[in-house]
Design a protein around this nucleic acid. Structure first.
Lengths: 155, 155
DNA sequence: ATGAGTGCAAATGCTTTGCATCCTG
DNA sequence: CAGGATGCAAAGCATTTGCACTCAT
């Protein structure tokens, strides 16, 4: 079943996303097992940045033997394969879990400090140069936009 | 495991920081107890973004009765009082804990993907306008600079 | 038959909570 | 003496691990 999402609406499955993930699995020489396929389908088009728990819950019905460990393993594999990213963005309202983001294109995250909702925000059109930091080689910049969603702070 | 401070050297205590924290406590009508004072002194000048565990360990010697709960309580109070900030920035090398940052001035964080070290990076001089996001009211932008410290990736 | 993948349960680690006690105002 | 603060231990979670079993190559 299709769970709660916050500001975004659940997009209809885009075959391209599922395909992209499956190709990533193949590239990493990982087998296309029923469990992995189910996990991929369960979250690859979900913009709500679900936790492993949420994904696990979604799959209980259609695949009652699904194991928690398999969810974690698969998500870790997908991340290694470049088919998803992991986030930790708990703020004041955060629930402390790792969240999985099937969107691997560069983008920021808007996080509601009150309800913990997360929304993707397209990266700025003009890409800025990586900042220089002494003693560091910067590979990427991750931006979290903290605030309140209109549902929590209307008006 | 506790990653060490990377580029920064532990600064000598700046009375102003301790004072600022104590004033924040006062403003929040929180008592200046020996435990809180010790906790403040133990991390307020530490740029390594320690975890509660690290702070607790530091205090074991000078205050053997110190309780873990008190460390958490005090740090939560300090955060509420605006005297510190909490971070979760575990990446690939992250150890999963909440980290405490006594620096409440606007700044970014450089995180080493290999050893988990964290360094403060002064915010860019020219401040950019807050990005507009539909369905959100953005209060602040948090930037994490992912990369490798020169200790992990020399040259 | 070899090894990847899975499922179950137990273990781990960080954080929070409950509650009795202590202390300060 | 009332409420804030502390200390201790236990409870809660999310995540990881160990191990036996299954299945595909």
């Amino acid at each position: 079943m299709i769970p709660n999402i916050i500001p975004g609406v659940r997009r209809l499955p885009e075959p391209s996303r599922v395909d992209r993930a499956l190709r990533a699995l193949e590239r990493a020489s990982l087998r296309r097992t029923p469990q992995r396929l189910a996990i991929v389908r369960a979250f690859v088009d979900d913009p709500s940045h679900p936790t492993a728990q949420m994904i696990f819950d979604r799959l209980r019905d259609e695949m009652p033997t699904m194991s928690f460990a398999t969810v974690y393993n698969t998500l870790a594999s997908l991340e290694q394969a470049g088919a998803c990213r992991t986030l930790r963005l708990d703020g004041p309202a955060g629930d402390g879990g790792v969240r999985f983001d099937p969107n691997v294109d560069p983008h920021d995250h808007a996080v509601c400090d009150r309800c913990g909702a997360v929304a993707d925000v397209p990266a700025p059109a003009r890409k800025e140069p990586l900042p220089r930091v002494e003693g560091f080689r910067v590979h990427a910049v991750e931006r979290i936009l903290r605030g309140a969603c209109t549902r929590c702070a209307p008006g």
